[in-house]
C-alpha cells in the first residue's frame, strides 16, 4: 500500500474544471476510488450531480472510459460492459493480458431507491464489478428532495420542516445491510474524511473476484446547509457520533475500521448525534424546545444501530 503522499502524485483520472459545487463530497470519493487501483478502469455512473457536472457535452472530465445510461441502471449497464469484456476476452477479441476493472456509481437516490433492483440483480449475478454509492442523503441534483437515505428529522424540499411536520419522518434505509444480505465477497462503509481508510476499502473492492459494494458518505453543503469548507468535518462528525460507522464485511466477517474501531473500544468518546446535526441547517428546527423528544428518539435509534453493528462484528468473528 503506497502512502498518501505517493498516492496523490498518481495521475488524476477525473480532470479538474468539472462543474461540481465547491465543497462537494462526491469528487473526493471519485479521487479515492480511482487512486485505489493502477489498473485501467471503465466507469459507469447514474444520472445525478456527478454525471451532469462532469460530462456536459462537448466536455468531459473523465480521462477513463465512461458511460452514463440513465438514472436507475448504472449497475445493469456496467454489468453489460463487464459481460462484453468477458465475452470478447474469451473469444480472443481482446488481448489476454488486458486487465480492466469495472466501476458503477450512483448517488443515494440512484442506489437506495430507483436503482435498487438494478443493483441487486447485478450483484446477485456475480459480475466482477465494484459498485460505489456516494451517499449525500437526498436527491441533491434535482433540488434536495428526500430519499430513503435521508436522516430522520432532516428538512428537505419534499420533507420540509413546517408547523405540523418536523422534517423527514422516517429513519434512513440501512442500504449497506441490504447489500451485505446479498452475500457478496466484499461490502464496506466508508467516509470521504478518512482518506486512507476509504482508499484501502476501494483497493480491496477492486481486488476481490466478483461483486463488491462500498457505501461512502459524501456530504453536500447545499443540501445539508453548512459552509462548503466544512465538508470533511461534517463527514468526520457523522462517524464520531456513530451516525455513520466505518466498517467492512469480507466474506461474511464484519470488521470495524478507522474511528469506528477506536470508538468501539472507547465508547465514552462517542459524540452525541446533536454535535453533528447542530452544524447543519437541515436540522435547524431540531434545536427548538418542542423537538427535544425527536432528538432523543434519533439519538436512541443511532445508538441501537451502532449496538447492533457491534453484535454483528462479535457474532461473525466468534
Amino acid at each position: 500500500m503506497p502512502t498518501i503522499k505517493e498516492i496523490v502524485k498518481q495521475p488524476e483520472r477525473l480532470a479538474p474544471g468539472h462543474r461540481l459545487c465547491a465543497g462537494c463530497g462526491a469528487p473526493i470519493a471519485v479521487r479515492q476510488i480511482l487512486h485505489a487501483t493502477t489498473d485501467k478502469v471503465v466507469v459507469g455512473c447514474a444520472t445525478g450531480c456527478l454525471e451532469v457536472t462532469t460530462t456536459t457535452y462537448p466536455f468531459t472530465a473523465w480521462k477513463v472510459p465512461f458511460i452514463h445510461n440513465a438514472f436507475e441502471n448504472s449497475a445493469a449497464t456496467v454489468s453489460g460492459v463487464e459481460a462484453a469484456y468477458r465475452s470478447l476476452k474469451k473469444q480472443g477479441k481482446l488481448p489476454a493480458d488486458k486487465k480492466i476493472k469495472f466501476l458503477a456509481m450512483g448517488g443515494d437516490g440512484g442506489t437506495y431507491d430507483i436503482g435498487f433492483q438494478s443493483l441487486s440483480g447485478a450483484m446477485e449475478r456475480g459480475h466482477n464489478m465494484v459498485y460505489v454509492c456516494y451517499d449525500n442523503g437526498a436527491y441533491m441534483n434535482t433540488g434536495i428532495q428526500r430519499s430513503s437515505a435521508t436522516p430522520k428529522g432532516a428538512s428537505t424540499t419534499t420533507s420540509p420542516a413546517g408547523t405540523v411536520q418536523q422534517g423527514k419522518k422516517e429513519f434512513p434505509k440501512n442500504m449497506t445491510a441490504c447489500m451485505i444480505a446479498h452475500d457478496i465477497p466484499y461490502v464496506a462503509q466508508a467516509s470521504i474524511h478518512n482518506y486512507m481508510d476509504a482508499i484501502k476499502k476501494f483497493e480491496k473492492a477492486f481486488l476481490v473476484e466478483g461483486p463488491a459494494f462500498v457505501n461512502i458518505l459524501a456530504p453536500c453543503p447545499r443540501g445539508w446547509r453548512y459552509p462548503g469548507e466544512k465538508t470533511v468535518e461534517m463527514a468526520r462528525l457523522a462517524v464520531e457520533s456513530c451516525f455513520w460507522a466505518l466498517f467492512e464485511v469480507e466474506n461474511g466477517k464484519y470488521r470495524l475500521t478507522g474511528e469506528s474501531a477506536r470508538l468501539a473500544k472507547n465508547p465514552d468518546k462517542i459524540r452525541p448525534v446533536m454535535d453533528w446535526m447542530q452544524e447543519q441547517g437541515r436540522f435547524r428546527h431540531l434545536k427548538l424546545p418542542k423537538n427535544a423528544d425527536l432528538v432523543v428518539e434519533i439519538q436512541e435509534e443511532v445508538k441501537r444501530r451502532w449496538q447492533w453493528l457491534l453484535k454483528l462484528v462479535e457474532a461473525s468473528n466468534s
Binding site: K40, E51, P58, F66, V81
Partner: peptide, 13 residues
C-alpha cells in the same frame, strides 16, 4: 468503451 487506451465518454449531458 473497452478501448481503454482511447477513452470515450458515452451518454453525456
Amino acid at each position: 468503451l473497452l478501448d481503454v487506451d482511447n477513452p470515450t465518454t458515452y451518454g453525456p449531458l
